[in-house]
Amino acid sequence: MMAISSPQYVWTLFVKPLQTTTGGSLAAVQITFSMLIVLQTWLSPLQGWLIDRFGARVLITLGCLMSGLGWVASSQVTSLMGLYLSYGLLCGIGTGVVYIGIVGLMLKWFPDRRGLAAGVVAAGYGFGAILTTFPIDSMIRSSGASTTLLTFGIVLGLVGALAGLFMQAPPADFEAPAPKVASSVRDVAPRDMLKTKLFWLLFVMMTMMSTGGLMVTSQFAPVMREFGVANVMIFGMAALPFALT
């Protein structure tokens, strides 16, 4: 999870350099982030089915490689279409597969601690950005965005893929502890789930919560530069990467 969070959380650091390399406007370049999020989330049902069909280890490993390859390819792009296909398409599909695969595995291994298990892996997704934001920002300033995308694409892709090789589902005879909190044991088909009010309530809640956060995340650097505070020092650290962490 830590290896695939950077394409989302540090995207804003690459916006201005990518405008220069592609010649695109801010709005045109930001379409890349929209593609990333749409593919990362709306393909989740299909990705979940593929993981059940072919196994979490294979799909998680491939997802990490796709995410890393997306950054490597992005380091060489000179057009908006190239950016959309590399950062938007490859990173979007790759990070989505990994996220769904790991969350699903955690819930299978710890059905009696589902909330804690999902919370821990979600925290890992955010913690990855904490570890990489300052190094990425520093390398962009010293070596340029292309070198940064290439270097971190290779490193994060390989680290994630290596970790993915150790992923495995619980064995058939695995006996999980009984959940401490009572829950429904009624199985509901996807089509029936879509007919329930509770599903749509949760769907709207998640949509509203995530949309606000993603809007801020994607536009953070342009807004801070517009107000002239991106390079203000806070506790000896530049304000922009400090705020992103």
Score class of each variant (00 low, 15 high):
Q30A: 11
R225D: 15
G126I: 10
L162R: 02
G82T: 05
L39T: 09
G213K: 14
I93M: 10
I154N: 08
Q168D: 14
A56V: 15
D192I: 03
F174N: 12
L80W: 13
K180L: 05
E226K: 11
T147F: 06
L59K: 13
D192K: 10
L83G: 07
V121S: 03
F199C: 11
P17H: 12
L131M: 15
G104R: 06
T211K: 12
T217G: 01
S5Y: 00
F220A: 14
M208C: 14
K16A: 15
P171N: 10
G55I: 09
I140H: 03
Y84T: 07
G160R: 00
T132W: 08
L62N: 03
S74W: 08
P45T: 09
G115V: 07
L202T: 10
T211Q: 13
T147P: 02
L158H: 01
T22A: 09
I100H: 05
L214C: 05
T41W: 06
P241F: 00
D112H: 13
R114V: 02
S74L: 04
G55P: 08
L150K: 06
A117E: 12
S67M: 07
S183L: 12
G160N: 00
M208S: 10
G101M: 00
Q219H: 13
L90I: 06
A189S: 10
V181M: 00
G24I: 07
M215A: 15
R53A: 07
Q219A: 14
G88M: 01
Q19R: 13
P222A: 13
D112N: 00
F166H: 13
M208A: 12
L149T: 12
T147E: 11
L62W: 05
T211N: 08
Q19C: 04
L59C: 11
D187L: 07
T95D: 06
F152M: 09
T147N: 08
L26D: 06
L201Y: 15
R53H: 01
A243F: 02
A189D: 12
G70I: 01
W42F: 15
V38Q: 06
L158C: 08
G126T: 12
F110I: 14
F33T: 06
L198V: 10
Q168V: 11
P179T: 00
R114A: 05
F33K: 02
Y125R: 04
T147L: 13
Q19F: 04
G23T: 14
V204W: 12
R113T: 13
